[in-house]
Design a protein around this nucleic acid. Structure first.
Lengths: 201, 201
DNA sequence: CGAATAACCATACGAACATATGGCTTCCTC
DNA sequence: GAGGAAGCCATATGTTCGTATGGTTATTCG
């Protein structure tokens, strides 16, 4: 049911995710959906939280992969951060769902809490990466990790909007992807100017 | 009527802006609102465009003021860019309206067009500022103005979200405002490292 | 003047939706 | 094997909303 809800919102917006539509999409009756979710709010919140959990899990998996490959932290971040960008149809769908709920979060505190926490996790992970970078010499010791994380997470979110407007399969879309990658590379370079001590030879 | 629509959306979200509520808030009957707007979509689009026009006009006025004061371009940008941040109740209301319409833009092309154009104007103005900065020596000639504008506009938008979550009157809110200003200052400093030639003595 | 145009209103209509109700099956458990 | 919980469904109910309709008053202009 949560998957059906996600699909409907991604395809036609929050208003399209009526109880009847969700039931039909999931192959159940309206009554059955009601059996599992006491209210529509509950259903929507569950579907939203499910999506953010999936996203964070994907990022965590990519971090783990990068660590097992002994990549420098900067390279790991360079891989992970575009994971939240709307570069293919799946992630464009997630972008649409996320934006729909961000609007809903303005009026529904429970949704705002999920959005707030998701953002906090992302920012926290970046901040931790910067701190780790100090220990291994990639980051200068006087860098403010919280501030760096704030700028980097804001940058990702802001660039997402631009990327969504210009689908990545067009000519100008590909140029935009190159530009956003270059920006991210440059900014990571300014926060991670050094080489990892553990990779020295 | 547009003002009433704005007030309702800012205060309680898009769903609260029903024809009846708008009419009541504006002091008219439903029929009169219908007399001026052929459909609800038209009313909403008009109210949205009105808001973005106001915002862009405010920024343009601040740019003109800065120019008449002969400020360096970097200082003008440092003044203008936080104009779009939700730092007081008026701009928090505009933020809420903008976010509501951003979600709507995902499904309504006419709204998407307004959002797209507004973003393009902001990015274009920043790009022009960077180009001007090259001419007067504030910006290094090899800087890519479009890319700089892309990063700066994304940064503003992304930081808006963080600022909204933490109202500026709290203790942590004030700390966040300081942090965002510092980030903006630093980033403008990296794109505008030089002094304006016209201010040399 | 007089007619057309614009401003304005009250109310009716019909569609869409969330939720409530009551009932039917299936499967476990004591 | 009786009882009850869980899974599932069709339909009723009441609300909300956008829009349509028909009308009244004021203003403009030939």
């Amino acid at each position: 049911m949560a998957a059906a809800t996600h699909k409907l919102i991604a395809h036609a917006g929050l208003d399209a995710a009526t109880m009847a539509a969700v039931a039909r999409e999931a192959g159940f009756s309206v009554g059955t959906v009601q059996h599992y979710f006491a209210s529509k709010d509950e259903l929507l919140l569950f579907a939203y939280k499910r999506m953010t959990d999936h996203q964070l899990a994907r990022v965590a998996r990519m971090v783990a992969e990068g660590e097992s490959e002994q990549l420098p932290i900067r390279a790991i971040l360079m891989r992970c951060m575009p994971e939240l960008w709307p570069l293919d149809e799946i992630r464009r769908g997630e972008y649409r769902v996320a934006k729909a709920f961000h609007a809903r979060a303005l009026d529904v505190p429970t949704v705002a809490e999920v959005a707030r926490e998701t953002a906090a996790v992302v920012r926290g992970q970046i901040a931790r990466a910067v701190e780790n970078g100090k220990e291994c010499g990639e980051v200068q010791p006087e860098t403010d990790a919280e501030r760096a994380a704030l700028e980097l997470s804001a940058l990702i979110a802001g660039l997402s909007d631009e990327l969504y407007r210009e689908p990545a399969d067009g000519r100008s879309g590909r140029a935009l992807v190159k530009a956003t990658n270059a920006i991210l590379e440059e900014r990571l370079g300014s926060y991670f100017p050094g080489d990892c001590r553990h990779h020295e030879r």
